[in-house]
């Protein structure tokens, strides 16, 4: 009798969500604490995202193919006995059903895994801009990186058709001007037809709409007294 489910695949709810949260939580616990010297991107602080688990992913895929082989052989067996596929209810039929359901379950897991990761990745376009931060680039696989670029381009072409930048103004404006602290050497920048030097650690009073792109890239922060 073949194994129906390898122990490496945790059980899951029909949507596959619990599988994903459980998986990411356990991976998070086992990973070493981040180095203090690596400054995390502020927008990623609350984001739980782990490296693409390609080993587990490949295992589930090969399990799917094994289920398929077993399923085919059981169906052949029923056919060889000249039994009617639609009405036969013997052990081979129920064996085939179990293989089918396991396969479908694995498919849901894999799809949910990719889909949920894609949702997080596409959400980053709104939070950090068109370039994936270094720490995210290490965690996505090349298909996901491609997905981020494609999705980013889709948003950009919508914005250029509408002639409106939707990535600024993420919070309701209180004041047209805000005080910001520069976190990195940005250099000379031309804002509203006068240039301004944005040196590291300097404080500035800028138009909120001018400052927002820098803030979302993690180059500035709002300075609150």
């Amino acid at each position: 009798m073949p194994r129906f489910s390898s122990p490496s695949v945790p059980p899951l709810s029909p949507t596959g969500r619990s599988f994903l949260t459980a998986a990411s939580a356990s991976v998070r616990r086992s990973s070493p604490p981040p180095l203090a010297s690596v400054r995390s991107h502020p927008a990623l602080a609350k984001c739980i995202f782990t490296s693409f688990n390609s080993d587990l992913f490949d295992q589930v895929i090969s399990e799917c193919n094994e289920h398929s082989l077993q399923l085919q052989s059981l169906i052949r067996k029923i056919e060889e006995q000249n039994l009617d596929m639609q009405t036969t209810r013997n052990e081979d039929h129920f064996g085939a059903v179990i293989h089918h359901l396991s396969l479908v379950r694995n498919k849901r897991c894999l799809m949910a895994y990719m889909y949920n990761r894609a949702e997080i990745i596409q959400g980053l376009r709104w939070k950090v801009g068109p370039v994936l931060p270094q720490e995210m680039q290490e965690k996505v696989n090349y298909l996901e990186e491609e997905y981020f670029k494609d999705h980013s381009a889709a948003i950009e072409s919508y914005m250029s058709e509408m002639d409106l930048d939707l990535t600024v103004d993420m919070v309701p404006p209180k004041d047209p001007y805000i005080q910001v602290r520069v976190l990195d050497d940005i250099g000379e920048v031309c804002l509203d037809d006068h240039s301004i030097s944005l040196a590291k650690h300097s404080l500035h009073f800028l138009r909120r709409t001018d400052a927002e792109p820098f803030i979302s890239q993690g180059l500035m922060e709002e300075f609150l007294e």
């Binding site: 894999l110 799809m111 491609e146």
Partner: peptide
């Protein structure tokens, strides 16, 4: 495209 290339293409018929 993402799901096709990562999951669907690798699943059985």
């Amino acid at each position: 495209k993402l799901l096709e290339q990562s999951v669907l293409a690798r699943l059985p018929y």
